[in-house]
Design a protein around this nucleic acid. Structure first.
Length: 937
DNA sequence: GTACTCACG
DNA sequence: GACGTACGTGAGTACG
């Protein structure tokens, strides 16, 4: 069979990249026992190659074979179209180090391994296929990628190795409605959301196939587009001609890739037993090594069990280490030699748990006091770096305590480890440590985070603090920080804690974190939240860290002036209120106010809550004010001002960082069960906007000189998601047509033509639309609209009658929650609903929460995806992402770059669901800009 | 520490 | 039939 490739020869081409991704996503994360190197994808890849070899040993065996891989992210298609494959998620951290190993595996099997920088595997496959056909041979392409189907026919067929299905001309015609030679025409029209091929808007494969069947080919179709009968279709083709032609160039494979070998070099060769078994042994694939050794008729090599029991997360899932915690065994690292030993251990392992100790909770202001490391359960150390003297003199000593390495020396030694792409850094709430370390010039990566793993698996079931996780999963109560620093006013900072006490506490934290990671990591896959963790949680950490460190400029003088104005107004109102009451009292005390209103003045409607106090909420006071009572009306005004002053104009000033002049909020990734972020210290997600007076607070949020603030927000994202998940055609169509959705709902419900819509009717429909998202109830709607309950219930009945799909969706969601104990978003995020089976009033709460969670959560997932892609999207622009407010992102941009920034950001936001989810409704993003947040919003 | 109130999406 | 409800948050103040 040796010699020239020609007639009678049969070439097999394996789409290697597809094999890898399949192996990675289909298999649990396996790590090499001796050092923890992730090898799950390599293992799966080897199994697939082995199975392929065995399956193809028969009479129709290939004479020539090659595995072809993609290489490099930039190809000629990116030059044609900068958005090509722009929706692709970044390669998962655990997969990256496995890529070179798959090449090695291919060569170990003695199969030609082909890749070429800047070329996609598909183009190389096309080129080799052309050469083989021209030489008179046959070709089988082992892949199920539809982009390769254009090559089928003429002695070329495809094989879907997973389904063991052959794909010939007939199968291609089934899929595309045209023969292989016209596949590119159909693809050019239909586009592709996965590769981000634009195509013709509104035309899918079905329509595209019809058009090509009618007109023969794409060029003829475009030239004769005027003849198309359907007006919308005709217009689309005429208007998007350039885009369609571009799409065709993108989907057409290049069969002229320059290659520095010939088909003859691809001849099938027997594997060399020593090489292949050597590789498999090195990877520590026990089962496969034995199987292949048996097949080759040689003795299987022995793979030593080099790992202590319990330290491998992959082989022994869900079994927490039973090793007891022994704080006395933790090491205090005091010199370079000791530190180097720990760095070596971390490098050898491939992972290390890291925890930083600091003087405070504000990552932007606190100082680093020490770092702890753990490399296996029970094996942890603490490196004290900034502990001060014992402080036994009255003023506390500021001198560094004895027996500590110089901070700079320790950080210089640790930096390569903490930045090494081959060593996984494990932490609990890594965003905190990443921010602290960033201020010392260390960009920690890659990271795993036990808090985020717990959140991905158990949102809604319990909290995710280290204390809670340790107690629940390790049956161990960590040393409380209070024992070291005290609490309240007398609390000391960590740098004042004696080093030997700090060692026990800090090293234990790293130990716990490592044990939790070993427990959680394999569970992610079992619980089917690996993708959630890897695409929605972990990549958010560096993005949020950067946003928080950037902060937003807040003008102290503006706040201060407003504060004074509010104080004056409040004083005036307070005097009036006391006058009306006939006595002085604390207006800010609901208890005293209730007594004044309902006991002394005997106003109607005094209702006491469970604590025996009168309710004096805004709704109660508004009702009284509406009846003409002045005092409650004044109290409402006073309360608004009081809120604005204390929470915003005063408190915000205290949060201005003296070094940066900016406010640096902190986002809690696990702050809301639905996937939303929470903002704290200060909360910048509840800055007033609904009243004119409150909105002026936003004027204090300003851009630096020469810059502007730009704000982009999703329009009606939750209603759009509802329309999609509940499958309501009328709503979907309304969104596609860009209609006023509340007016449209009103028109449907109250039988009012759109051109006769009144604001009042629209307002009611709007309230109903919001109610639906929240899990509507007659009582809630009645209270919101201030109408009788029966009337509100009538609206709801009418709504469900008109949109029966909504009711079905709600019932199905509640049933799902009851059955499974959780609900999920379109992206697979799970929100647990432990109360769903409860009896009594909680049942109602739980049901509504279950209905709301997938909608709110999907919206949260979408903006997370946009944020994760944002740094790359705006990398070349003078723009920084500053804030997120659930459906809004705020940027600071150099003057002159506003338009470009809005364009780039809007594109990312509008496409954020792709390619994972193709929504039936468009996502629409509104944009604004200005010198301050009030103008930009 | 808990309850109440109110700011946001 | 009664119960008590819009979903998700953070923070300031009063009060025990």
């Amino acid at each position: 069979m040796s010699g020239t490739f020609g007639k009678g020869c049969h070439l097999h081409l394996i789409d290697g990249s597809a094999f890898i991704f399949r192996a990675f996503h289909a298999l649990p994360p396996l790590t090499r026992k001796s050092d923890g190197l992730p090898v799950g994808a390599v293992s799966g890849f080897c199994n697939m190659i082995h199975k392929y070899v065995e399956d193809n040993a028969g009479p129709d065996a290939p004479t020539h074979v090659a595995v072809v891989f993609d290489k490099g992210s930039h190809t000629f298609r990116n030059d044609l179209y900068d958005q090509y494959k722009a929706n692709r998620d970044a390669m998962p951290e655990d997969l990256r180090p496995q890529i070179p190993l798959t090449r090695e595996a291919t060569r170990a099997f003695n199969i030609a391994c082909i890749e070429k920088e800047g070329y996609e595997a598909d183009d190389i496959i096309a080129t080799l296929t052309r050469q083989a056909v021209e030489a008179g041979g046959r070709v089988t392409i082992i892949s199920s990628d539809k982009d390769l189907m254009q090559l089928v026919g003429n002695g070329v067929e495809m094989l879907d190795a997973m389904k063991n299905r052959r794909i010939g001309v007939e199968e291609v015609e089934q899929k595309f409605g045209v023969g292989p030679d016209r596949v590119v025409d159909v693809q050019a029209l239909a586009g592709d959301s996965v590769d981000n091929i634009p195509g013709a808007p509104g035309i899918g494969i079905k329509t595209a196939a019809l058009l090509i069947q009618d007109y023969g080919d794409l060029e003829t179709l475009l030239d004769r587009a005027e003849e198309i009968k359907q007006p919308k279709r005709r217009q689309t083709l005429i208007e998007n001609r350039a885009q369609i032609e571009l799409s065709k160039k993108l989907v057409t494979l290049d069969a002229a890739t320059p290659l520095d070998f010939t088909l003859d070099d691809l001849e099938v060769k027997e594997p060399d037993a020593e090489t292949l078994l050597g590789f498999l042994t090195q990877m520590e694939f026990r089962t496969l090594t034995k199987r292949i050794a048996d097949g080759l008729g040689v003795e299987p090599p022995v793979i030593a069990d080099t790992n202590p029991a319990g330290a491998n997360p992959a082989d022994e899932p869900a079994a927490p280490s039973t090793l007891p915690f022994t704080p006395d065994n933790y090491e205090c690292v005091r010199d370079a030699a000791a530190l180097q030993a720990w760095i070596d251990r971390a490098n050898a392992r491939g992972w290390v748990a890291v925890d930083t100790e600091t003087t405070g909770l504000d990552e932007m202001r606190c100082d680093l006091v020490g770092i702890s490391l753990a490399v296996e359960p029970g094996a942890a150390c603490y490196i004290p770096l900034g502990h001060r003297g014992a402080g036994d003199d009255l003023f506390g000593s500021d001198a560094l305590a004895e027996g500590q390495m110089p901070l700079n020396q320790a950080l210089e030694m640790l930096k390569p480890l903490l930045q090494d792409p081959a060593v996984m850094k494990i932490g609990q709430n890594m965003k905190y440590d990443a921010k602290v370390l960033a201020r010392y010039g260390i960009d920690i990566a890659p990271i795993d985070d036990t808090m985020l793993m717990s959140y991905a698996m158990n949102a809604g079931l319990h909290g995710h603090s280290m204390d809670a996780l340790s107690e629940r999963y390790l049956s161990h109560d960590p040393i409380p920080i209070k024992d070291l620093i005290g609490s309240g006013k007398s609390a000391i900072t960590f740098d004042r804690v004696p080093i030997d006490e700090a060692v026990k506490y800090a090293a234990e934290d790293a130990d716990i974190t490592l044990r939790l990671a070993h427990l959680f990591k394999p569970q992610l896959h079992q619980r089917k939240v690996t993708t959630v963790y890897e695409t929605l949680e972990r990549p958010l950490v560096p993005v949020l860290a950067q946003m928080e460190m950037t902060g937003i400029k807040v003008d102290r003088d503006t706040l201060s002036r407003m504060s004074n104005a509010f104080a004056q107004k409040m004083a005036g109102l307070e005097a009036e209120i006391h006058e009306l009451a006939g006595e002085t009292f604390n207006v800010g005390s609901p208890k005293q106010l209730g007594e004044i209103l309902f006991d002394k003045m005997s106003l109607p409607g005094g209702k006491k809550g469970k604590t025996g106090a009168y309710a004096t909420g805004a709704d109660v006071l508004e009702d009284l004010a509406a009846e003409g009572h002045d005092l409650p009306a004044r109290v409402l005004d006073w309360r608004q001002l009081s809120k604005l002053k204390s929470t915003y104009t005063d408190a915000l000033q205290d949060h201005i960082n003296p070094d940066t002049g900016r406010v640096h909020t902190s986002y809690v990734i696990t702050g809301a069960v639905t996937g939303r972020l929470a903002s704290t210290d200060p909360n910048l997600q509840n800055i007033p906007v609904r009243t004119e007076e409150g909105r002026r607070i936003r004027e204090a949020f300003v851009a630096e000189d020469g810059k502007v603030l730009v704000s982009l927000d999703y329009s009606q994202i939750e209603l759009r998601i509802l329309a999609h998940v509940a499958g309501i055609d009328a709503l979907k169509q309304a969104f596609r047509d860009g209609q006023d959705i509340h007016a449209m709902t009103a028109s449907e419900m109250f039988d009012v033509p759109m051109d006769q819509m009144t604001p009042e009717i629209r307002r009611r429909a709007k309230a109903i639309n919001f109610g639906v998202i929240y899990g509507i109830s007659g009582f809630g709607l009645a209270r919101n609209l201030r109408i009788p309950r029966a009337e509100a219930q009538g609206f709801i009945d009418r709504y469900f009658e008109r949109f029966p799909g909504i009711k079905d969706y709600m019932d199905a969601t509640v049933a799902f929650a009851k059955d499974r104990g959780y609900v999920q978003t379109l992206f697979g995020r799970r929100i647990h609903t432990p109360e769903i089976g409860a009896k009594g009033p909680q049942a109602g709460f739980a049901k509504r929460a279950a209905i709301n969670a997938p909608i709110q959560g999907t919206a949260a997932d979408i903006i997370r995806r946009a944020m994760i892609r944002m740094p790359d999207a705006i990398a070349d622009l003078p723009a920084k992402m500053l804030l997120q407010v659930h459906d809004e992102l705020i940027f600071e941009v150099d003057k002159g770059a506003e338009a470009d920034t809005i364009k780039a950001v809007r594109k990312v936001m509008e496409r954020a669901a792709l390619p994972a989810v193709a929504l039936d409704v468009p996502l629409v993003v509104d944009a604004g800009q200005g010198a301050n947040w009030a103008e930009a919003h």
